[in-house]
Write a protein that binds this DNA or RNA. Structure first.
Lengths: 150, 150
DNA sequence: TCTATCTAGATGCATTTGCATCTATCGTCA
DNA sequence: TGACGATAGATGCAAATGCATCTAGATAGA
């Protein structure tokens, strides 16, 4: 019974894919124009900033972001090379490490947010009312995988 | 006044980005699991199928899809190598060409749609009612760039 | 008509991604 | 303790992408 999608489903899908790509591209362009790193870097820095001094294990980053394991691995290598994060040996697991954001990393994240936040405000905040934004969030929330009971 | 995004805007943005990436990945995985080409190929084949026998110029594909010009160029080269499209010299513009979908291309598109359509049905059609899907489409439509009056 | 500018499309090179696999360590169970 | 499967993370290689630039043909203006 779910073999062929209904026209409303096709339309919603098409718009979701198209709009999200467009907006993402816009946000990326704004960062690039300001000479800042890409959103992938932002995502990682954001998670690490939220995690605080304790830092995070790479596999935790893999879970929280939607990046593949090998992508996280290489992303962290670049972030470390730029001095935005530091890797610490972790005591109780010889395989692992803990990644912590540095002062420079926090500073970079702040500068990125100034641009990124402005993009979000302009691309989304300025186009829908708060009620509409909430309605959108609810609808999108229902599409999450795995489905979440809320 | 659009410097800092409101919490509802941030939430809607985050969900939009996350959900769209997740669903896209799911749909791509389904195609891959069936041994079919990626959605990028589908998008091009879809546009060409809609265009009919007249075909499309590559720059028209660049406009309609969200791919960069050089990506369209290389995508078409691969599609042609696979015999899914054919390039025809166009009479009135020596720089250009017309790209037309072949029978094999139509057949591939059909097989991809069997899988892709099922993904759409399962990922969005089965999760929201038609009214909700329409509401989602309307909200997303308001986020399009450039803005469209409808 | 000659030249400068623009547009269509391709491509060389560097970076990034995907895939598969590798190494090292951990945990479990005999 | 020793062997085996599972987990953390890295990496070699191939494919895809981004960026800049190139070539060929079109267009406009003197």
């Amino acid at each position: 019974m779910t073999g062929i999608p209904s026209p409303p489903a096709i339309k919603a899908w098409a718009r979701l894919m198209r709009v999200s790509r467009q907006l993402l591209e816009r946000a990326e362009d704004a960062l690039k124009d300001s000479g800042l790193p890409s959103l992938a870097w932002y995502d990682v820095l954001h998670e690490l900033a939220e995690a605080g001094e304790g830092g995070l294990r790479p596999f935790q980053l893999t879970e929280r972001t939607l990046f593949a394991q090998y992508n996280v691995s290489r992303l962290l290598a670049r972030l470390e090379a730029d001095g935005l994060v530091e890797k610490l040996r972790v005591a109780d697991d010889g395989r692992g490490q803990t990644v912590r954001i540095t002062g420079k990393g926090r500073e970079t994240r702040r500068r990125m947010w100034a641009v990124y936040g402005r993009s979000i405000a302009g691309l989304v905040g300025a186009r829908l009312s708060n009620d509409e934004l909430d309605a959108l969030s609810v609808l999108l929330g229902r599409l999450r995988h795995p489905a979440v009971m809320e």
